[in-house]
Design a protein around this nucleic acid. Structure first.
Lengths: 253, 253
DNA sequence: GTAGACAATATGTCAGGACAATACAACCTA
DNA sequence: TAGGTTGTATTGTCCTGACATATTGTCTAC
Protein backbone atom coordinates (compact mmCIF):
# COMPACT_ATOMS: atom_id res chain seq x y z
CA UNK A 1 0.00 0.00 0.00
CA UNK A 2 1.38 3.36 -0.98
CA UNK A 3 -0.40 5.50 1.56
CA UNK A 4 -0.96 4.76 5.24
CA UNK A 5 -4.45 6.19 5.31
CA UNK A 6 -5.20 4.17 8.37
CA UNK A 7 -3.57 6.78 10.54
CA UNK A 8 -5.66 7.54 13.57
CA UNK A 9 -7.21 10.89 14.26
CA UNK A 10 -4.63 13.25 15.68
CA UNK A 11 -5.25 15.12 18.87
CA UNK A 12 -4.82 18.84 18.86
CA UNK A 13 -4.33 20.76 22.03
CA UNK A 14 -5.64 24.21 21.56
CA UNK A 15 -5.77 27.04 24.04
CA UNK A 16 -8.69 29.24 23.24
CA UNK A 17 -8.85 32.92 23.99
CA UNK A 18 -12.51 33.72 24.28
CA UNK A 19 -12.05 37.26 25.49
CA UNK A 20 -9.71 38.53 22.80
CA UNK A 21 -10.74 39.93 19.45
CA UNK A 22 -9.55 36.93 17.46
CA UNK A 23 -12.49 34.81 16.27
CA UNK A 24 -12.60 31.32 17.65
CA UNK A 25 -12.82 29.72 14.23
CA UNK A 26 -9.65 31.56 13.27
CA UNK A 27 -7.80 30.37 16.35
CA UNK A 28 -8.76 26.82 15.48
CA UNK A 29 -7.85 27.02 11.82
CA UNK A 30 -4.52 28.67 12.60
CA UNK A 31 -3.65 25.96 15.06
CA UNK A 32 -4.52 23.21 12.59
CA UNK A 33 -2.60 24.93 9.83
CA UNK A 34 0.42 25.14 12.07
CA UNK A 35 0.09 21.46 12.92
CA UNK A 36 0.07 20.66 9.21
CA UNK A 37 3.15 22.73 8.55
CA UNK A 38 5.19 21.44 11.48
CA UNK A 39 4.37 17.84 10.65
CA UNK A 40 2.10 17.08 13.59
CA UNK A 41 -0.58 16.39 11.02
CA UNK A 42 1.26 14.61 8.20
CA UNK A 43 -0.19 14.43 4.68
CA UNK A 44 -2.96 11.88 4.48
CA UNK A 45 -3.72 11.87 8.19
CA UNK A 46 -7.29 12.15 9.30
CA UNK A 47 -8.69 14.86 11.54
CA UNK A 48 -11.04 14.11 14.39
CA UNK A 49 -14.59 14.38 13.20
CA UNK A 50 -16.31 17.72 13.54
CA UNK A 51 -18.65 16.77 16.35
CA UNK A 52 -15.98 15.19 18.55
CA UNK A 53 -13.61 18.07 17.95
CA UNK A 54 -16.33 20.49 18.95
CA UNK A 55 -17.13 18.61 22.13
CA UNK A 56 -13.54 18.34 23.16
CA UNK A 57 -12.88 22.04 22.66
CA UNK A 58 -16.20 23.18 24.03
CA UNK A 59 -17.22 24.69 20.69
CA UNK A 60 -20.22 24.25 18.50
CA UNK A 61 -20.08 22.38 15.25
CA UNK A 62 -20.62 25.45 13.02
CA UNK A 63 -17.53 27.04 14.52
CA UNK A 64 -15.48 23.93 13.89
CA UNK A 65 -16.87 23.64 10.39
CA UNK A 66 -15.95 27.20 9.60
CA UNK A 67 -12.40 26.65 10.84
CA UNK A 68 -12.04 23.57 8.68
CA UNK A 69 -13.63 25.30 5.72
CA UNK A 70 -10.95 27.99 5.83
CA UNK A 71 -8.30 25.35 5.35
CA UNK A 72 -10.26 23.52 2.69
CA UNK A 73 -10.44 26.79 0.77
CA UNK A 74 -6.69 27.14 1.15
CA UNK A 75 -6.22 23.70 -0.30
CA UNK A 76 -4.73 22.21 2.86
CA UNK A 77 -7.58 19.88 3.78
CA UNK A 78 -10.04 17.72 1.88
CA UNK A 79 -13.44 16.70 3.18
CA UNK A 80 -15.44 13.67 2.16
CA UNK A 81 -18.81 12.94 3.61
CA UNK A 82 -19.01 9.60 5.29
CA UNK A 83 -15.22 9.51 5.43
CA UNK A 84 -13.84 12.46 7.28
CA UNK A 85 -11.37 15.22 6.74
CA UNK A 86 -7.82 14.56 5.59
CA UNK A 87 -4.66 16.54 5.07
CA UNK A 88 -3.84 16.99 1.38
CA UNK A 89 -0.66 15.44 0.05
CA UNK A 90 2.03 17.46 -1.57
CA UNK A 91 4.14 20.23 -0.22
CA UNK A 92 2.23 23.32 0.68
CA UNK A 93 3.15 26.63 -0.80
CA UNK A 94 1.89 30.13 -0.53
CA UNK A 95 -0.77 30.97 -3.05
CA UNK A 96 -1.55 34.07 -5.00
CA UNK A 97 -2.90 36.64 -2.61
CA UNK A 98 -3.95 40.22 -2.76
CA UNK A 99 -0.50 41.51 -2.00
CA UNK A 100 2.09 43.31 -4.01
CA UNK A 101 5.47 42.30 -5.32
CA UNK A 102 7.07 44.45 -2.64
CA UNK A 103 5.46 42.44 0.13
CA UNK A 104 6.23 39.18 -1.66
CA UNK A 105 9.90 40.04 -1.69
CA UNK A 106 9.96 41.29 1.89
CA UNK A 107 8.32 38.13 3.13
CA UNK A 108 10.77 35.92 1.32
CA UNK A 109 13.61 37.75 3.05
CA UNK A 110 14.85 39.69 0.07
CA UNK A 111 15.42 43.38 0.27
CA UNK A 112 13.24 45.18 -2.25
CA UNK A 113 14.47 48.34 -3.83
CA UNK A 114 12.46 50.72 -5.95
CA UNK A 115 13.56 53.26 -8.50
CA UNK A 116 10.86 55.68 -9.57
CA UNK A 117 11.15 56.11 -13.30
CA UNK A 118 8.44 58.70 -13.71
CA UNK A 119 5.32 60.08 -12.09
CA UNK A 120 2.79 62.15 -13.88
CA UNK A 121 -0.65 63.55 -13.25
CA UNK A 122 -2.51 63.34 -16.47
CA UNK A 123 -5.92 62.71 -17.93
CA UNK A 124 -7.42 59.26 -18.23
CA UNK A 125 -7.42 57.89 -21.74
CA UNK A 126 -10.06 55.46 -22.92
CA UNK A 127 -8.29 52.37 -21.66
CA UNK A 128 -7.60 53.81 -18.22
CA UNK A 129 -11.15 55.07 -17.92
CA UNK A 130 -12.48 51.61 -18.73
CA UNK A 131 -10.20 49.83 -16.30
CA UNK A 132 -10.70 52.24 -13.43
CA UNK A 133 -14.36 52.95 -14.00
CA UNK A 134 -13.86 56.69 -14.24
CA UNK A 135 -14.69 59.15 -16.98
CA UNK A 136 -12.34 59.82 -19.88
CA UNK A 137 -10.28 62.91 -19.16
CA UNK A 138 -10.56 62.75 -15.37
CA UNK A 139 -7.26 63.25 -13.54
CA UNK A 140 -5.18 60.17 -12.86
CA UNK A 141 -1.79 59.53 -11.31
CA UNK A 142 0.51 57.57 -13.57
CA UNK A 143 3.53 55.94 -11.92
CA UNK A 144 6.36 53.98 -13.51
CA UNK A 145 8.81 52.17 -11.28
CA UNK A 146 11.62 49.65 -11.50
CA UNK A 147 11.65 47.10 -8.69
CA UNK A 148 14.87 45.30 -7.78
CA UNK A 149 16.04 42.90 -5.12
CA UNK A 150 19.65 42.62 -4.09
CA UNK A 151 20.59 45.05 -6.81
CA UNK A 152 19.11 42.89 -9.55
CA UNK A 153 16.16 44.32 -11.48
CA UNK A 154 13.09 42.11 -11.24
CA UNK A 155 10.11 43.98 -12.58
CA UNK A 156 8.87 47.08 -14.35
CA UNK A 157 5.74 48.42 -12.69
CA UNK A 158 3.35 50.70 -14.50
CA UNK A 159 0.41 51.85 -12.38
CA UNK A 160 -2.50 54.22 -12.81
CA UNK A 161 -4.56 55.50 -9.88
CA UNK A 162 -7.76 57.55 -9.92
CA UNK A 163 -8.05 61.21 -8.94
CA UNK A 164 -8.40 60.66 -5.19
CA UNK A 165 -4.79 59.63 -4.94
CA UNK A 166 -3.09 62.34 -6.94
CA UNK A 167 -1.83 63.85 -3.68
CA UNK A 168 0.14 60.77 -2.75
CA UNK A 169 3.62 61.43 -1.42
CA UNK A 170 5.80 60.45 -4.31
CA UNK A 171 8.93 60.39 -2.17
CA UNK A 172 7.57 57.44 -0.23
CA UNK A 173 7.35 55.39 -3.40
CA UNK A 174 11.02 54.56 -3.34
CA UNK A 175 10.87 53.41 0.25
CA UNK A 176 7.54 51.58 0.41
CA UNK A 177 5.33 49.49 -1.77
CA UNK A 178 2.34 51.08 -3.42
CA UNK A 179 -0.03 48.81 -1.55
CA UNK A 180 1.56 49.80 1.75
CA UNK A 181 1.02 53.46 0.95
CA UNK A 182 -2.58 52.86 -0.03
CA UNK A 183 -3.28 50.89 3.12
CA UNK A 184 -1.66 53.60 5.21
CA UNK A 185 -4.20 55.99 3.70
CA UNK A 186 -6.98 53.74 4.95
CA UNK A 187 -7.68 52.11 1.62
CA UNK A 188 -8.42 48.41 1.90
CA UNK A 189 -8.21 46.37 -1.27
CA UNK A 190 -10.81 43.63 -1.28
CA UNK A 191 -11.09 42.26 -4.78
CA UNK A 192 -8.73 42.25 -7.72
CA UNK A 193 -8.94 40.92 -11.25
CA UNK A 194 -5.76 40.05 -12.96
CA UNK A 195 -4.43 38.47 -16.11
CA UNK A 196 -1.08 36.74 -16.42
CA UNK A 197 0.61 36.33 -19.75
CA UNK A 198 3.92 36.57 -21.53
CA UNK A 199 5.48 38.34 -24.49
CA UNK A 200 8.81 39.39 -25.91
CA UNK A 201 10.51 42.26 -24.13
CA UNK A 202 10.79 45.58 -25.89
CA UNK A 203 14.26 47.07 -26.25
CA UNK A 204 13.49 49.55 -23.51
CA UNK A 205 12.26 46.84 -21.12
CA UNK A 206 15.20 44.62 -21.89
CA UNK A 207 17.52 47.45 -20.99
CA UNK A 208 15.85 48.15 -17.69
CA UNK A 209 15.63 44.49 -16.70
CA UNK A 210 19.14 43.72 -17.90
CA UNK A 211 18.08 40.87 -20.16
CA UNK A 212 18.74 40.23 -23.86
CA UNK A 213 16.58 42.26 -26.19
CA UNK A 214 13.56 40.29 -27.37
CA UNK A 215 13.70 37.62 -24.69
CA UNK A 216 10.63 36.59 -22.74
CA UNK A 217 9.00 38.63 -19.99
CA UNK A 218 6.17 37.54 -17.73
CA UNK A 219 3.34 40.06 -17.69
CA UNK A 220 0.57 40.74 -15.22
CA UNK A 221 -2.15 43.32 -15.40
CA UNK A 222 -4.40 43.86 -12.46
CA UNK A 223 -7.28 46.06 -11.42
CA UNK A 224 -7.87 46.26 -7.66
CA UNK A 225 -11.10 47.34 -6.01
CA UNK A 226 -11.62 48.63 -2.49
CA UNK A 227 -14.31 47.43 -0.14
CA UNK A 228 -16.89 49.72 -1.65
CA UNK A 229 -16.26 48.13 -5.00
CA UNK A 230 -14.57 51.17 -6.51
CA UNK A 231 -11.43 50.68 -8.63
CA UNK A 232 -8.36 51.82 -6.72
CA UNK A 233 -5.51 50.83 -8.96
CA UNK A 234 -4.74 49.51 -12.40
CA UNK A 235 -1.31 48.12 -13.00
CA UNK A 236 0.59 46.62 -15.90
CA UNK A 237 3.72 44.87 -14.77
CA UNK A 238 6.38 42.86 -16.49
CA UNK A 239 8.76 40.55 -14.69
CA UNK A 240 12.05 38.87 -15.39
CA UNK A 241 10.83 35.29 -15.80
CA UNK A 242 13.98 33.75 -14.37
CA UNK A 243 13.47 35.63 -11.11
CA UNK A 244 9.73 35.62 -10.60
CA UNK A 245 6.70 33.41 -11.17
CA UNK A 246 3.18 33.09 -9.85
CA UNK A 247 2.23 30.25 -7.58
CA UNK A 248 -1.31 29.35 -6.61
CA UNK A 249 -3.54 26.67 -5.22
CA UNK A 250 -6.84 25.88 -6.90
CA UNK A 251 -9.71 24.26 -5.04
CA UNK A 252 -12.72 22.66 -6.65
CA UNK A 253 -15.91 23.77 -4.92
CA UNK B 1 -20.07 62.29 -7.70
CA UNK B 2 -18.76 59.47 -9.77
CA UNK B 3 -20.79 56.62 -8.36
CA UNK B 4 -24.49 56.60 -7.50
CA UNK B 5 -24.12 54.49 -4.38
CA UNK B 6 -27.46 55.72 -3.19
CA UNK B 7 -29.22 53.05 -5.23
CA UNK B 8 -31.96 51.37 -3.27
CA UNK B 9 -31.99 47.70 -2.42
CA UNK B 10 -33.04 45.70 -5.42
CA UNK B 11 -35.78 43.14 -5.25
CA UNK B 12 -35.12 39.65 -6.45
CA UNK B 13 -37.86 37.23 -7.31
CA UNK B 14 -36.70 33.74 -6.65
CA UNK B 15 -38.62 30.50 -7.00
CA UNK B 16 -37.28 27.96 -4.59
CA UNK B 17 -37.31 24.24 -5.17
CA UNK B 18 -37.26 22.72 -1.74
CA UNK B 19 -37.79 19.14 -2.88
CA UNK B 20 -35.00 18.92 -5.47
CA UNK B 21 -31.41 18.01 -4.76
CA UNK B 22 -30.09 21.52 -5.36
CA UNK B 23 -29.21 23.22 -2.07
CA UNK B 24 -31.21 26.30 -1.25
CA UNK B 25 -28.14 28.47 -0.77
CA UNK B 26 -27.01 27.50 -4.25
CA UNK B 27 -30.35 28.38 -5.78
CA UNK B 28 -30.12 31.79 -4.15
CA UNK B 29 -26.54 32.48 -5.13
CA UNK B 30 -27.16 31.37 -8.71
CA UNK B 31 -30.12 33.66 -9.02
CA UNK B 32 -28.20 36.61 -7.64
CA UNK B 33 -25.24 35.89 -9.88
CA UNK B 34 -27.55 35.80 -12.87
CA UNK B 35 -29.06 39.11 -11.80
CA UNK B 36 -25.59 40.61 -11.67
CA UNK B 37 -24.69 39.34 -15.11
CA UNK B 38 -27.91 40.41 -16.81
CA UNK B 39 -27.73 43.87 -15.29
CA UNK B 40 -30.65 43.57 -12.88
CA UNK B 41 -28.13 44.24 -10.17
CA UNK B 42 -25.79 46.85 -11.65
CA UNK B 43 -22.32 47.45 -10.21
CA UNK B 44 -22.45 49.41 -6.99
CA UNK B 45 -26.08 48.56 -6.22
CA UNK B 46 -26.92 47.35 -2.76
CA UNK B 47 -28.55 44.06 -1.89
CA UNK B 48 -31.37 43.77 0.59
CA UNK B 49 -29.96 43.08 4.02
CA UNK B 50 -29.59 39.48 5.04
CA UNK B 51 -32.39 39.38 7.57
CA UNK B 52 -34.95 40.99 5.30
CA UNK B 53 -33.97 38.77 2.39
CA UNK B 54 -34.33 35.75 4.61
CA UNK B 55 -37.77 36.78 5.82
CA UNK B 56 -39.04 37.52 2.36
CA UNK B 57 -37.88 34.20 0.97
CA UNK B 58 -38.82 32.19 4.04
CA UNK B 59 -35.21 31.17 4.67
CA UNK B 60 -32.98 31.43 7.69
CA UNK B 61 -30.17 33.90 7.87
CA UNK B 62 -27.37 31.30 7.73
CA UNK B 63 -28.71 30.09 4.41
CA UNK B 64 -28.79 33.61 3.01
CA UNK B 65 -25.34 34.28 4.39
CA UNK B 66 -23.94 31.22 2.75
CA UNK B 67 -25.44 32.16 -0.59
CA UNK B 68 -23.93 35.62 -0.37
CA UNK B 69 -20.60 34.21 0.80
CA UNK B 70 -20.34 32.12 -2.36
CA UNK B 71 -20.50 35.26 -4.45
CA UNK B 72 -18.14 37.15 -2.17
CA UNK B 73 -15.63 34.35 -2.67
CA UNK B 74 -16.12 34.67 -6.42
CA UNK B 75 -15.37 38.37 -6.21
CA UNK B 76 -18.82 39.46 -7.34
CA UNK B 77 -20.02 40.97 -4.08
CA UNK B 78 -18.43 42.94 -1.28
CA UNK B 79 -19.74 43.00 2.27
CA UNK B 80 -19.21 45.74 4.82
CA UNK B 81 -20.52 45.49 8.31
CA UNK B 82 -22.78 48.34 9.21
CA UNK B 83 -23.24 49.15 5.54
CA UNK B 84 -24.54 46.23 3.60
CA UNK B 85 -23.65 44.13 0.59
CA UNK B 86 -22.81 45.67 -2.76
CA UNK B 87 -22.07 44.49 -6.26
CA UNK B 88 -18.42 44.96 -7.21
CA UNK B 89 -17.54 47.33 -10.00
CA UNK B 90 -15.68 46.24 -13.06
CA UNK B 91 -16.53 43.73 -15.70
CA UNK B 92 -16.80 40.20 -14.48
CA UNK B 93 -14.68 37.52 -15.99
CA UNK B 94 -14.16 33.85 -15.48
CA UNK B 95 -11.47 33.03 -12.97
CA UNK B 96 -8.89 30.32 -12.91
CA UNK B 97 -10.65 27.09 -12.14
CA UNK B 98 -9.75 23.48 -11.84
CA UNK B 99 -10.35 22.80 -15.49
CA UNK B 100 -8.17 22.03 -18.41
CA UNK B 101 -7.23 23.96 -21.48
CA UNK B 102 -9.51 21.69 -23.51
CA UNK B 103 -12.53 22.74 -21.49
CA UNK B 104 -11.45 26.37 -21.55
CA UNK B 105 -11.41 26.31 -25.31
CA UNK B 106 -14.68 24.42 -25.63
CA UNK B 107 -16.44 26.86 -23.37
CA UNK B 108 -15.21 29.85 -25.30
CA UNK B 109 -16.68 28.36 -28.45
CA UNK B 110 -13.45 27.32 -30.10
CA UNK B 111 -12.93 23.85 -31.43
CA UNK B 112 -10.03 22.18 -29.67
CA UNK B 113 -7.90 19.72 -31.55
CA UNK B 114 -5.26 17.46 -30.09
CA UNK B 115 -2.30 15.78 -31.70
CA UNK B 116 -0.68 13.13 -29.55
CA UNK B 117 3.07 13.55 -29.94
CA UNK B 118 4.09 10.59 -27.83
CA UNK B 119 2.91 8.29 -25.07
CA UNK B 120 5.21 6.17 -23.02
CA UNK B 121 5.02 3.99 -19.94
CA UNK B 122 8.22 4.48 -18.06
CA UNK B 123 9.67 4.70 -14.60
CA UNK B 124 9.36 7.77 -12.43
CA UNK B 125 12.51 9.79 -12.14
CA UNK B 126 13.30 11.81 -9.06
CA UNK B 127 11.39 14.89 -10.12
CA UNK B 128 8.28 12.94 -11.12
CA UNK B 129 8.39 10.93 -7.89
CA UNK B 130 8.54 14.12 -5.88
CA UNK B 131 5.71 15.82 -7.74
CA UNK B 132 3.40 12.80 -7.75
CA UNK B 133 4.27 11.51 -4.31
CA UNK B 134 5.22 8.05 -5.59
CA UNK B 135 8.44 6.13 -5.28
CA UNK B 136 11.28 6.56 -7.73
CA UNK B 137 11.10 3.86 -10.38
CA UNK B 138 7.38 3.18 -10.07
CA UNK B 139 5.55 3.01 -13.39
CA UNK B 140 4.17 6.25 -14.79
CA UNK B 141 2.37 7.23 -17.96
CA UNK B 142 4.08 10.02 -19.83
CA UNK B 143 2.01 11.87 -22.43
CA UNK B 144 3.04 14.66 -24.79
CA UNK B 145 0.42 16.44 -26.81
CA UNK B 146 -0.01 19.46 -29.04
CA UNK B 147 -3.24 21.34 -28.53
CA UNK B 148 -4.65 23.52 -31.31
CA UNK B 149 -7.79 25.52 -31.95
CA UNK B 150 -9.02 26.31 -35.40
CA UNK B 151 -5.91 24.72 -36.83
CA UNK B 152 -3.59 27.06 -34.96
CA UNK B 153 -1.29 25.48 -32.37
CA UNK B 154 -1.81 26.91 -28.93
CA UNK B 155 0.00 24.79 -26.40
CA UNK B 156 2.40 21.93 -25.82
CA UNK B 157 1.18 19.68 -23.04
CA UNK B 158 3.51 17.37 -21.17
CA UNK B 159 1.79 15.23 -18.56
CA UNK B 160 2.81 12.47 -16.18
CA UNK B 161 0.30 10.22 -14.43
CA UNK B 162 0.88 7.61 -11.72
CA UNK B 163 0.65 3.87 -12.19
CA UNK B 164 -3.12 3.55 -11.75
CA UNK B 165 -3.73 5.23 -15.07
CA UNK B 166 -1.31 3.37 -17.30
CA UNK B 167 -4.27 1.53 -18.83
CA UNK B 168 -5.87 4.71 -20.12
CA UNK B 169 -7.20 4.50 -23.67
CA UNK B 170 -4.64 6.47 -25.60
CA UNK B 171 -6.89 6.72 -28.64
CA UNK B 172 -9.31 8.88 -26.67
CA UNK B 173 -6.61 11.44 -26.05
CA UNK B 174 -6.99 12.96 -29.48
CA UNK B 175 -10.73 13.29 -29.08
CA UNK B 176 -11.09 14.34 -25.46
CA UNK B 177 -9.28 16.35 -22.83
CA UNK B 178 -7.21 14.55 -20.25
CA UNK B 179 -9.38 15.86 -17.45
CA UNK B 180 -12.49 14.58 -19.21
CA UNK B 181 -10.97 11.12 -19.44
CA UNK B 182 -9.98 11.16 -15.79
CA UNK B 183 -13.40 12.28 -14.68
CA UNK B 184 -15.00 9.59 -16.82
CA UNK B 185 -12.95 7.09 -14.85
CA UNK B 186 -14.49 8.41 -11.66
CA UNK B 187 -11.51 10.49 -10.65
CA UNK B 188 -12.47 13.83 -9.16
CA UNK B 189 -9.80 16.47 -8.92
CA UNK B 190 -10.21 18.56 -5.83
CA UNK B 191 -7.02 20.53 -5.27
CA UNK B 192 -4.25 21.61 -7.59
CA UNK B 193 -1.08 23.56 -7.12
CA UNK B 194 0.29 25.43 -10.06
CA UNK B 195 2.98 27.85 -11.02
CA UNK B 196 2.81 30.23 -13.94
CA UNK B 197 5.92 31.64 -15.51
CA UNK B 198 7.56 32.45 -18.80
CA UNK B 199 10.74 31.69 -20.71
CA UNK B 200 12.20 31.66 -24.21
CA UNK B 201 10.95 28.90 -26.46
CA UNK B 202 13.32 26.12 -27.42
CA UNK B 203 13.82 25.48 -31.11
CA UNK B 204 11.65 22.37 -30.86
CA UNK B 205 8.84 24.22 -29.10
CA UNK B 206 9.03 27.11 -31.53
CA UNK B 207 8.61 24.68 -34.38
CA UNK B 208 5.58 23.01 -32.87
CA UNK B 209 3.89 26.26 -31.90
CA UNK B 210 4.76 27.96 -35.18
CA UNK B 211 6.44 30.93 -33.55
CA UNK B 212 9.91 32.44 -34.07
CA UNK B 213 12.70 30.56 -32.38
CA UNK B 214 13.61 32.06 -29.03
CA UNK B 215 10.43 34.09 -28.61
CA UNK B 216 8.45 34.05 -25.39
CA UNK B 217 6.24 31.20 -24.21
CA UNK B 218 3.94 31.21 -21.22
CA UNK B 219 4.51 28.21 -18.95
CA UNK B 220 2.35 26.50 -16.38
CA UNK B 221 3.19 23.50 -14.26
CA UNK B 222 0.48 21.93 -12.17
CA UNK B 223 0.05 19.02 -9.81
CA UNK B 224 -3.56 17.94 -9.25
CA UNK B 225 -4.82 15.91 -6.31
CA UNK B 226 -8.00 13.85 -6.07
CA UNK B 227 -10.41 13.98 -3.18
CA UNK B 228 -8.35 11.56 -1.12
CA UNK B 229 -5.41 13.90 -1.44
CA UNK B 230 -3.42 11.64 -3.75
CA UNK B 231 -1.58 13.17 -6.69
CA UNK B 232 -3.36 12.35 -9.94
CA UNK B 233 -1.50 14.31 -12.54
CA UNK B 234 1.57 16.45 -13.02
CA UNK B 235 1.72 18.61 -16.09
CA UNK B 236 4.19 21.02 -17.62
CA UNK B 237 2.61 23.09 -20.33
CA UNK B 238 3.77 25.89 -22.51
CA UNK B 239 1.45 28.22 -24.36
CA UNK B 240 1.67 30.65 -27.22
CA UNK B 241 1.40 33.91 -25.30
CA UNK B 242 -0.43 35.73 -28.07
CA UNK B 243 -3.24 33.16 -27.95
CA UNK B 244 -3.58 32.31 -24.29
CA UNK B 245 -3.34 33.91 -20.88
CA UNK B 246 -4.54 33.23 -17.37
CA UNK B 247 -7.28 35.29 -15.85
CA UNK B 248 -8.24 35.25 -12.21
CA UNK B 249 -10.05 37.07 -9.45
CA UNK B 250 -8.43 37.51 -6.07
CA UNK B 251 -10.44 38.11 -2.93
CA UNK B 252 -9.06 39.39 0.34
CA UNK B 253 -10.37 37.36 3.25
C1' DG C 1 -19.16 -18.13 -0.59
C1' DT C 2 -21.52 -14.33 -2.32
C1' DA C 3 -24.88 -10.71 -2.57
C1' DG C 4 -27.96 -7.78 -0.49
C1' DA C 5 -29.69 -5.44 3.64
C1' DC C 6 -28.55 -2.87 7.44
C1' DA C 7 -25.88 -0.26 10.86
C1' DA C 8 -22.27 2.96 12.02
C1' DT C 9 -19.93 7.10 10.90
C1' DA C 10 -19.11 11.43 9.07
C1' DT C 11 -20.04 15.44 6.52
C1' DG C 12 -23.89 18.40 4.12
C1' DT C 13 -27.81 21.31 4.72
C1' DC C 14 -31.05 24.15 7.22
C1' DA C 15 -33.52 26.46 11.10
C1' DG C 16 -33.78 30.02 14.68
C1' DG C 17 -31.88 32.81 18.11
C1' DA C 18 -28.57 35.83 20.63
C1' DC C 19 -25.11 39.17 21.23
C1' DA C 20 -20.91 41.85 19.38
C1' DA C 21 -18.71 45.08 16.36
C1' DT C 22 -18.82 48.54 12.99
C1' DA C 23 -20.30 52.44 10.06
C1' DC C 24 -23.10 56.01 9.27
C1' DA C 25 -26.48 59.60 10.25
C1' DA C 26 -28.89 62.41 13.18
C1' DC C 27 -28.81 64.99 17.08
C1' DC C 28 -27.32 67.73 20.71
C1' DT C 29 -24.12 70.71 22.95
C1' DA C 30 -20.42 74.06 23.49
C1' DT D 1 -20.88 76.33 13.26
C1' DA D 2 -17.91 72.61 14.92
C1' DG D 3 -17.44 68.81 17.52
C1' DG D 4 -18.65 64.98 20.07
C1' DT D 5 -22.49 61.74 21.42
C1' DT D 6 -26.12 58.79 20.67
C1' DG D 7 -28.99 55.88 17.97
C1' DT D 8 -29.89 52.76 14.19
C1' DA D 9 -28.87 49.66 10.61
C1' DT D 10 -26.17 45.90 9.09
C1' DT D 11 -22.93 42.36 9.02
C1' DG D 12 -19.79 39.27 12.15
C1' DT D 13 -19.57 35.63 15.38
C1' DC D 14 -21.35 31.86 18.01
C1' DC D 15 -24.73 28.72 19.97
C1' DT D 16 -28.16 24.62 19.88
C1' DG D 17 -30.68 21.41 17.46
C1' DA D 18 -32.38 18.56 13.68
C1' DC D 19 -32.54 15.87 9.59
C1' DA D 20 -30.41 14.45 4.92
C1' DT D 21 -27.01 11.96 2.41
C1' DA D 22 -22.85 9.54 1.26
C1' DT D 23 -19.43 5.91 2.40
C1' DT D 24 -17.75 1.95 4.56
C1' DG D 25 -18.00 -2.15 6.90
C1' DT D 26 -20.71 -5.91 8.91
C1' DC D 27 -24.13 -9.09 9.31
C1' DT D 28 -27.52 -12.09 7.43
C1' DA D 29 -29.87 -14.85 4.08
C1' DC D 30 -29.53 -17.60 0.34
Amino acid sequence: MAEPNQSLPVDLFIDLDRSGPVPLYFQISSRIEQAIHDGTLPPGSRLENEVALGNRLGLSRPTIRRAIQELVDKGLLVRRRGIGTQVVHGKVSRGVELTSLYEDLERSGQKPDTRVLSTEIGEADERMAEELGVEVGSPVLHIKRLRSAGGVPIAILDNVLPADFTDIDLGDLSKHGLYQLLRARGVTMRVAKQRIGARDATAHEAGLLDIPKGSAVLTMSRTAFDNSGRAVEWGQHCYRPDLYSFEMTLVER
